[in-house]
Write a protein that binds this DNA or RNA. Structure first.
Lengths: 341, 341
DNA sequence: CGTTTTTCCGTAAACGTTTACGACAACACA
DNA sequence: TGTGTTGTCGTAAACGTTTACGGAAAAACG
């Protein structure tokens, strides 16, 4: 079954060294023999054993994406990640690299899986998502000197790694501006618990814009819950039961919005009619909800491609010529108006 | 950085062979030296290089799950898969195995990624999902003799591999029974295009039950679209515009139902009020939709665990004693009544 | 034709493990 | 004391690659 480079060499009556050089496109091999090697490889459908190759090369030629759950979250926010991963994978494939997705176990707070990937050298670099404001994963990776890039910013780890993020602060402010322009003064914000950085940034923009409009920030209108449907569902009644209830709600993502709208419906409140709703990070879900939720659509697939570029450029072994490499980028978020506000 | 077994041996002044044996728990090593080795390994935080190990052992100690897109589907149906993967990963971890998720590129019809995993021996076995009625991936894997298991049945590949599936046929029939009992006679079925086997099975049950109730199967009430929100949205108006429109719709999964309900809303039809809706494969989404959709909730996490067991038992290198091993299982699907029918 | 350069290829070491084999000492047994 | 057994460990080969090095033949040059 497993045809090795030795089989090829024996079959062609040449040495394995030559076969390897021919396969790897080195210059010091006759054009004719190279062709014979390539033909034979195709015929015996040879492909190099990954373990042998990476053992010798000292690199695995693959990048790991860590899919890590948050406590209480069963869903990993993965509908969000798939287009991102598609872009990541596409760009990596252009460089002949493999993308592997590593699942963290639920409750894996000590980043057991991450450590495992790093320590057993299963990948040459990792990509982290859902960065936290203080992120121990980033601390760990910088400490051990393992290459990585992040989707999202963090205060951890200095500025020594590539990161790509969205301008949640601006989006939060823009959402408030839009609602105020439509006459709302009581605007609630529902965001994830934990110190996920995008929730923090969103709230900062929200606060800033509110103050700019001379509206007092009311803690009763700010709530946090698990970043999924259940979280939105559980937390929304709280802000509705405040002394002076909101006329508009900004949800941090679409899953929370879905749960929140469910809670509203149960209270007899119709989103888009009795209550304005805006979502900061939406997915196709928002479009097919009734009413269609207005929100900010992140360009996830291009982001994946870009972060792959940035990561590759930051790894000496992969980077071609060391050009000027951007270390961090923050992309704008564009509002798509629909029917809910 | 990378501490190898040689460093350990040098540090302890013993041979690398002994270190390896101590680490791997072999019998022929003194209890005292074993402890010293383990202590040193912890201190130098050594962990074996995966490439070296799998090169020598001839196995990678990891299982690959293929996450493959379907044409026109941007979303991979992955919210569905995550709990399944959680169970898979949990069970594999119990045996010290790693789970890696390999992303197929969109439009990767030739299973380029699957071939790559197999040929470069990146994993010891693969897990396939979303099996088709005739599945070329299964043909390929059986042809080359690579171990695998499937979530879902197929007619391909004989009965030589473990598979775990849900009883979509029974669910389809049960949904019809329930609707008929509530007085419906015009019942539509909306299912994925392509020959995804669960769509086929669902439809078979639907047809059978309809006939059992003496109701003629009307082709105008059966439609297929992409298995996501857009698919349901695009296809639903078609069945509504038939000469004798349905009073109930069974959707094959929740994403299609979401899109379908959107289309209904735009036609002024309220699901759960003017139209009964049942979902065959639901996720938490259904619960938080308004109205909450009644549907069949698959026990995904236990299914992941079980399939891992079945896969492991089918691989001679992993299986302990060759006990009686179940090759295929079909699990029942339980209806959860909510507000939409 | 002699010398130098170029082209091409084989040899062998190395990557980090695991493991078959044998060696040696200690011990048990007669 | 001699023989066999047991416990413990070192040696070295092997897994499948890549690549530095050197050598032989061919080509280029005078």
């Amino acid at each position: 079954m497993a045809s090795s480079i030795h089989d090829l060499a024996r079959h062609l009556n040449i040495s394995i060294g030559t076969v390897s050089r021919a396969l790897n496109g080195r210059a010091d091999v006759n054009a004719d023999t190279r062709q014979r090697v390539l033909d034979a490889a195709a015929k015996l459908n040879y492909s190099p054993n990954q373990s042998g190759r990476s053992l010798r090369r000292g690199s695995t030629h693959s990048i790991a994406f860590m899919l890590q759950p948050h406590p209480g979250d069963q869903q990993y926010g993965e509908p969000f990640f798939i287009p991102f991963l598609t872009g990541l994978q596409a760009k990596l494939a252009e460089s002949g690299l493999d993308l592997i997705v590593v699942m963290g176990a639920p409750g894996d707070y000590q980043q057991e899986r991450l450590r495992r990937v790093v320590e057993t050298r299963r990948a040459d670099a990792v990509v982290l998502a859902w960065t936290r404001r203080e992120d121990e994963r980033i601390d760990y990776l910088t400490r051990v000197g393992f290459p990585f890039a992040t989707l999202g910013r963090s205060r951890s780890g200095g500025k020594s790694y590539p990161s790509l993020d969205l301008d949640f602060e601006k989006a939060g402010a823009e959402a408030v501006d839009r609602l105020v322009a439509r006459g709302h003064r009581r605007i609630a914000a529902i965001r994830p618990s934990l110190d996920l950085n995008f929730g923090y940034l969103f709230l900062a923009g929200y606060r800033k814009a509110l103050r700019r409009h001379g509206i007092e920030v009311d803690p009763e209108l700010i709530a946090s819950g698990f970043i999924n449907e259940a979280g939105g569902y559980e937390v929304t009644p709280g802000v509705m039961n405040s002394k002076d209830p909101p006329t508009a709600i900004i949800f941090n993502n679409d899953a929370m919005a879905l749960g929140g709208c469910k809670a509203l419906a149960e209270m007899g409140i119709k989103p888009g009619h009795d209550m304005a709703v805006i979502v900061i990070v939406d997915t196709p879900l928002c479009r097919y909800f009734s009413p269609a939720l207005t929100g900010f659509r992140p360009p996830l697939e291009p982001m994946g491609r870009r972060l792959a570029e940035m990561l590759l450029a930051s790894i000496p072994a992969y980077a071609g010529e060391e050009g000027p490499r951007t270390i961090r980028e923050v992309w704008p978020l564009e509002l798509i108006a629909r029917d809910s506000d």
